[in-house]
Simulated assay, not measured.
Amino acid sequence: MAAEIIEFPERGRDRLVSSIARLETIVREVERIVADEPEAGVDRLLAIMEHMGDRLVDLATLVLDEESKLQARKAFISLSDKIAETREAFEQVGDRTHT
């Protein structure tokens, strides 16, 4: 995902429906990459996972109570941290294979 398109809610559509549609778009992108571009690399898939996490947090704010929203945010912060750690690990492995 080299560039992100700014999406505005469609008029007359429920925000929940719009959020789910955006999430489905991300899932289709992951499926396409895995099927058509397996060499795309872990970094690209991790970026998509981050984007999906952001979309899930947006969706959670629409359907969860305040306590659950806070738990969801904490979970996705943890996910982002794990994604960053995974990137670092792959970069270190890549550095070692190039030396």
Rank of each mutant, 00 (worst) to 15 (best):
T97Q: 13
L70C: 09
E50H: 14
I48D: 06
T61F: 15
V30H: 06
R22W: 01
L16K: 00
I33P: 03
D43C: 10
R44Y: 07
I20H: 00
V27F: 10
S80C: 14
D14H: 09
D43Y: 13
I20W: 01
L62S: 01
K82R: 15
G12H: 01
E67N: 11
S18D: 10
E24V: 08
I5A: 07
G12A: 00
E31S: 06
I26G: 04
F90Y: 11
V63P: 02
D65V: 06
V30T: 08
L45P: 04
L59D: 03
D14M: 03
V63H: 00
G12I: 02
D36E: 14
R96D: 04
G41D: 03
A89F: 12
D14I: 02
S78I: 05
R87F: 07
E31N: 10
S68F: 11
E91G: 08
E39G: 15
P9A: 00
E7R: 01
R44I: 07
V57D: 14
I5P: 09
A75T: 04
D65F: 06
I83T: 07
R28L: 06
V63R: 00
A84L: 11
Q92K: 15
A47Q: 11
M52D: 03
L45D: 02
E7Y: 01
L79I: 09
S78C: 07
K69Y: 09
S78D: 13
S19D: 02
M52A: 14
L16W: 00
A72I: 00
P38H: 05
F76M: 06
R96F: 10
S80Q: 15
P9V: 01
H51N: 05
Q92A: 13
E29W: 03
A35L: 11
R73V: 14
D43A: 14
G41Y: 09
A35D: 08
A60S: 09
A72H: 02
A21Y: 02
R32K: 08
S80D: 15
A84I: 03
K74F: 07
L59R: 08
A21W: 01
R96N: 04
S80T: 14
R32P: 01
E50N: 14
E4Y: 00
E7W: 01
Q92L: 15
